[in-house]
Amino acid sequence: MARYGLRTLAVVYLLFLLVLPVILIIWRTFAGGLAPFAEALTSPSALHAFQVTVVVAGWAVVANTVFGIGVSLLLTRHSFPGKRLLNAFIDLPMAVSPVVVGLALILVYGRFAPVGGLLESWGFQVIFSTPGMVIATVFVSMPLVVRALVPVLEELGDEQEQAAHTLGASRLQSFLRITLPGIRWALGYGVVLCLARSLGEYGAVAVVSGRLVDQTQTLTLFVEERFQNFDQPAAFAAATALALVAVLTLLLTKLLRPKD
């Protein structure tokens, strides 16, 4: 009896907190058929926001993938003083509020900050422009690839790599032929998580982008701006598109997740 009670409680809780809200918004978006959905997403503003999102998330994923592979190799294959500290710093972005991230970057790279002012005098604008949005996105999604790779690299061990070295393989060869094939699923898992987080980032990007419509507006900023301007169909359509990407991410991570 208790079993049915708990099961019902769990299912009802998830239904009302998670399932019904998401289904309702998808249903409302498609209530008028596919045409209004397509129309709302192909307006010039929406297309521009989509393009900005892809550029920012693309660069952030590339940066975090390179950094993630490098740092996880450092953490698992090398010994150096301060390793625990580096390990702790990698997780720091997870605990920082996205708005704090935005403020922190403005205080360093803004027009009136020393570093930002210097870069600006060289004609390189960071804040209220794409580089700042990329840095903000890199910040918030930094730990994801590292955390996906470290356990797998530890599990694999370095015996095969050592063997390759003794047989005369260069470090690049042993990385490409031995390490990379060993971590490819975990890497895929980390990259998918990082991409999802980058596409969906809102708070940090809202601060550093200046929220300039048709200039620095990403899809998540588009959702908010359209909703505040009482353009519900466009807000719902973009939200549904992002929700569908999230569901796709979920299925992909389910496939890629390391089985234990």
């Binding site: 998670l18 918004i25 969906g200 719902f236 939200a239 999230a246 991410t249």
Partner: peptide, 23 residues
């Protein structure tokens, strides 16, 4: 059910707010 538990991690937060506001 086990799969959808992770949806809040994958869903952009602004969409989460909008979705809750709809219901």
């Amino acid at each position: 059910v086990d799969t959808i538990i992770d949806l809040p991690f994958a869903l952009p937060t602004i969409v989460a707010g909008l979705v809750l506001l709809a219901l």
